[in-house]
Write a protein that binds this DNA or RNA. Sequence first.
DNA 1: TCATTTTCTGAACACCATTCAGTATGTTTG
DNA 2: CAAACATACTGAATGGTGTTCAGAAAATGA
Lengths: 180, 180
Amino acid sequence: MKMFLEDGYAKTSIRNIADAIEYSPGTIYLYYKDKDELLYEVQRDAYGKLLEEFRTKAKHKDPVKRLMQIGKTYVAFGLANPELYDLMFIIRAPMNVDEELHKDNGGDSFDYLLTCLKECIDKDLLRVKDVDLCALQTWSVAHGLVSLNLRCRLKMMAEEKEMPKILNSAIEDYVKLLIK
Amino acid sequence: MKMFLEDGYAKTSIRNIADAIEYSPGTIYLYYKDKDELLYEVQRDAYGKLLEEFRTKAKHKDPVKRLMQIGKTYVAFGLANPELYDLMFIIRAPMNVDEELHKDNGGDSFDYLLTCLKECIDKDLLRVKDVDLCALQTWSVAHGLVSLNLRCRLKMMAEEKEMPKILNSAIEDYVKLLIK
DNA sequence: TCATTTTCTGAACACCATTCAGTATGTTTG
DNA sequence: CAAACATACTGAATGGTGTTCAGAAAATGA
């Protein structure tokens, strides 16, 4: 995980890992089917990390304010852990193998959002009706912001150092847009 | 471009390309600095393609309805051309070299959205004030939807074949959210 | 101590992007 | 026409990649 986060998934080779742990490359294949399976292990941790972040930084009683916290926490998480975010949501590799992995892991974070939104909508605090659609939409805004920035597609907007502020404003405005 | 779109950027090797055009691998390096530079050429085309799509499919007189068309066109474009979309907005490679390339190309499509939003806001038709922030937000929703789907992160939501409808609803609802 | 199981090795395979000395072709000049 | 030059191309070599597998080493049990 340390190497994946420092150098990125692609640049971390099985040989580099083998060197670092002082084993031969072949040994790794006795424990993991292939390089992707190493990724799953890291992803499992990463999804847990995000959920933990939600649980500690997005626990306001008011579901609308909590929704705002969730959005901001997500964006901040992506900005603070770019390589980790990459592994979790941008990299191509996995998702083909164990569908359960994501229902159990990434799913928990999504459920956190879902539960919050459900409470908001039940209390008639938002301008939307469909919980699932709204959750998808909200996740998409947050993911869009983080991933476009991570892939340097927002260079035309402002300088690098300005981006956190801008992304924060963007997600803030979006949540405000949801509120009745 | 044909090979990039059929097999993806990563799986298309310089050797494969050399074979296909019946030249030696070395020859390619006489015309392109490296593999990434081949990508830029394709990206240039791709950005043009998206802009062309906007121009033909999002030209309603009413700026709000045009905004809706832009959103739906973008999502449809991403769903219809997954590999192309990947090259344009998800792949890691470029953005480091020629910043102008993107101001001139990807920028044109972004300007199309920007202009439309400006008209909407000038006519006081939307619930937002800041054009740039709203453009970023709108692009993020659309990109989020497309890229999460492309990377199979939405498997828990519905079956593959259901996704186009859902993504369409999501972007539709978002634009409706913007309207006063 | 010896047999058995478990763990590990590292060379080999088939790829990859990239480089570069050398060759072939085309063009221009004396 | 021939020699000089310019352009175009080659393909082997370099140093990387993920992955496999026969065989060696270490640990365990009798």
